[in-house]
Computed example of a mutant assay.
Amino acid sequence: FVVLVGYEKMVKRLGDRGSIPVEVVPFGVPLVTTKLKALGLKPRVRENDGKEFITDNGNVILDCAVKRIASAARLDRELLAIPGVVGTGLFIAMADVVLVAEASGKIRVLKR
């Protein structure tokens, strides 16, 4: 599994950007929102041009305000255990290789 990201996505520690995306099936948004709040996250529906952003799969993205994440793997498991959650932006242990597009145009290769 290969992930391609721009250099601006790189952080020292997950959560440093203050937000993580959670993809949710539309009918699950109310329940997932409640569960996310119970985990101490602050979800808000992602919008594009004032309208709810819908993914290619027809799902909703909840951008969740976070502080530093003590255990990204644990948080990922907790999020994925919520009925209605399709995926998270944490990508824990998924990538075999990460290609980082640097500002200079060079590609940096990160391997597991």
Rank of each mutant, 00 (worst) to 15 (best):
L4C: 09
L4Q: 04
V5M: 02
G6D: 15
G6Y: 06
E8F: 03
K9G: 09
M10N: 05
V11N: 04
V11R: 13
K12Y: 09
G15W: 00
G15R: 00
D16E: 14
D16S: 01
R17G: 13
R17M: 12
G18C: 06
I20Q: 00
P21V: 06
V22M: 00
V24P: 03
P26Q: 08
F27W: 10
G28D: 04
V29G: 07
P30G: 10
L31F: 14
V32N: 02
T33P: 03
K35Y: 01
K35M: 06
K35W: 00
L36W: 00
K37R: 15
A38E: 13
A38T: 04
A38R: 14
L41Y: 05
K42V: 05
K42G: 01
K42D: 06
R44S: 08
R44G: 03
V45K: 10
R46I: 13
R46C: 09
R46E: 07
R46H: 11
E47M: 14
N48C: 04
N48W: 12
D49G: 07
D49F: 15
G50H: 10
E52I: 15
E52S: 13
F53T: 11
F53P: 12
I54P: 05
I54F: 10
T55R: 10
D56Q: 08
D56A: 08
N57V: 03
N57D: 13
G58T: 11
N59Y: 02
V60P: 01
V60T: 12
V60C: 05
V60R: 12
I61P: 05
I61Y: 05
L62H: 02
L62I: 07
C64W: 01
A65K: 11
A65L: 09
A65C: 04
V66C: 03
K67T: 15
A70K: 13
A73K: 14
A73W: 04
R74W: 13
L75F: 11
L75Q: 06
D76R: 08
D76K: 10
R77H: 10
R77P: 03
R77Y: 14
R77S: 13
L79Q: 01
L80K: 12
A81I: 02
G84I: 09
V85R: 00
V85D: 00
V86R: 08
V86Q: 09
V86T: 08
V86Y: 04
V86I: 14
G87H: 02
G87L: 03
T88H: 04
T88P: 00
T88A: 01
G89M: 03
I92W: 08
A95I: 05
D96N: 14
D96M: 04
D96H: 12
V97N: 11
V97T: 15
L99G: 10
V100F: 08
A101N: 07
A101Q: 13
E102T: 15
E102D: 13
A103I: 14
S104D: 15
S104E: 11
G105L: 12
G105S: 11
R108Y: 04
V109Y: 11
K111H: 11
K111Q: 14
R112M: 11
